[in-house]
Design a protein around this nucleic acid. Structure first.
Lengths: 265, 265
DNA sequence: CGTGTTTGTATATATTTATGCGTATTTAGT
DNA sequence: ACTAAATACGCATAAATATATACAAACACG
């Protein structure tokens, strides 16, 4: 996806739009790279970036630009930790998504990273209870976004509770990303909070397939609230460092295990 | 050079229709290309594009045109404009809020500013259809946040539609902040969008009192969709520069007019 | 069957916009 | 503080555009 456009024919506005999209999906842009890929002088790129920044659409930095959300970083303190690892997981998880599907995405920093990594122009429908995920996707084109209402739990950063559950019963998704839970090859999926676990269970039931994206600390662990059996999980995305044996344990239970790319960190 | 049709045989309307189709399928049109393919001068094409743009069917850009979806100013951009004036308005509006109240806050950059300006530790309940407002308040302590679910309208940056309306019917608020509408002392409150206006109307009906916060360009203006009569508005917050006469006009209709502090700008 | 009007188009000229280059300045990393 | 890259600024150029004007065909109407 290096050069999507013929050198001679690209409207300036299109270019700026493309820059914004790249900014969102990749998290950064470099002036020199853009110059090469769009086949215009760095001057023009810099003019674009300056203009976008003036409109408050990105943060201008030496060498390129950054998305504004990364610059302000409100509750992204958690995300700041292990950003590389989560990005690698998110990228891998995003490859499981197919054109036109309906996605059910739970709260959580990992899931937010997945949402940001979703490919452009794929005409996806995203159902979520997380305002931060909804907000991140509003800007993207071709996305249908459904927000699950209800009372917000500040600790989780999204809606939970009776009303959310009720709304969830009215929808049906292809793919489900229940956030941050513990997963064990034998005992299945576990949650840390009662209300939260109920919601995740409902999400899984409302979806055709379930994708669990687990950082290493969640693997082989259990918690207090049972969410689902391992047979209800079709896909598991794990970090590169996860051992062969552990992966095989899930594979034996019929779970497709996907390994993220290694990260330099 | 004529392609699809014999040189003389294509009605202007047909041509414009074809341009629109091409715009939708290809995501962009270039004046020079169209000129060649329809075998008319670039001037005629430009006239077409200008006309289509005037009817709000496309966005005119240098070199051609883009579909409107790619051109809507992202909400981050709108949020960044006139920060000073909006902040002054927001501060004034926030003073109308009392301890323990239930607030109903609509989408919009001004309303987002109001939410951010809400005083600390007042044990408020905020009901909103805007994910950005919800997100901003999650961090704050002592706030109960209820999110209205439904389909998100990317242009408005929040949920609208039947489901949102339905959820709204289940709540009751003390104070309501319907966002960005035109207000006139005689004809009342007006909205620019049908769906949007319905929601605002429902918000007002669900609230004890209504606060309209209006930047100067919204004052004395009307729009296409009626939202409410002026008697249903209890408070109006305006900028410092608004003239005495205009303020009196609202005062005579029983609206409490609140004037924001002056801004250096 | 003219005749005035409307409509679509083409031409000419002035203006705006986008871009690239040279140069002075700023920035980041030693 | 020094160096090299990145950047901002002014300027020139070429393309795209708007505006004004003119021309031709279609049309309405007496």
């Amino acid at each position: 996806m290096a050069k999507a456009t013929p050198p001679g024919e690209m409207l300036p506005q299109e270019r700026q739009h493309e820059i914004l999209q790249r900014l969102r999906s990749r998290g950064r842009v470099v002036a020199a790279e853009l110059s090469a890929e769009f086949a215009v002088s760095e001057d023009s790129i810099r003019r674009d970036l300056r203009e976008l920044a003036a409109h408050g659409l990105c943060k201008r930095v030496y060498g390129g630009a950054l998305p504004l959300s990364a610059a302000v970083a409100p509750l992204q303190q958690r995300r700041g930790e292990q950003v590389g690892r989560k990005l690698a997981l998110a990228r891998k998880a995003a490859t499981l998504v197919r054109e036109g599907q309906v996605l059910l995405i739970d709260t959580g920093s990992t899931n937010a990273a997945i949402a940001a990594a979703l490919p452009e122009r794929m005409r996806l429908t995203v159902i979520t209870n997380a305002p931060d995920i909804a907000l991140a996707l509003i800007e993207r084109e071709g996305f249908e976004i459904l927000l699950l209402g209800g009372r917000i739990n500040p600790r989780l950063g999204g809606t939970v509770g009776a009303q959310t559950l009720q709304e969830l019963h009215r929808v049906r998704a292809d793919l489900c990303f229940p956030g941050a839970c513990a997963i064990d090859a034998d005992s299945g999926l576990w949650g840390f909070d009662s209300e939260e676990s109920l919601l995740k269970r409902a999400m899984i039931e409302a979806s055709g397939e379930t994708v669990v994206v687990a950082t290493s600390d969640k693997l082989g662990a259990a918690a207090t609230h049972r969410i689902a059996q391992i047979t209800e999980v079709q896909h598991l995305v794990v970090e590169h460092a996860v051992g062969r044996q552990l992966r095989a344990a899930f594979g034996a239970r019929g779970v497709s295990v996907h390994r993220a790319e290694p990260v330099a960190d």
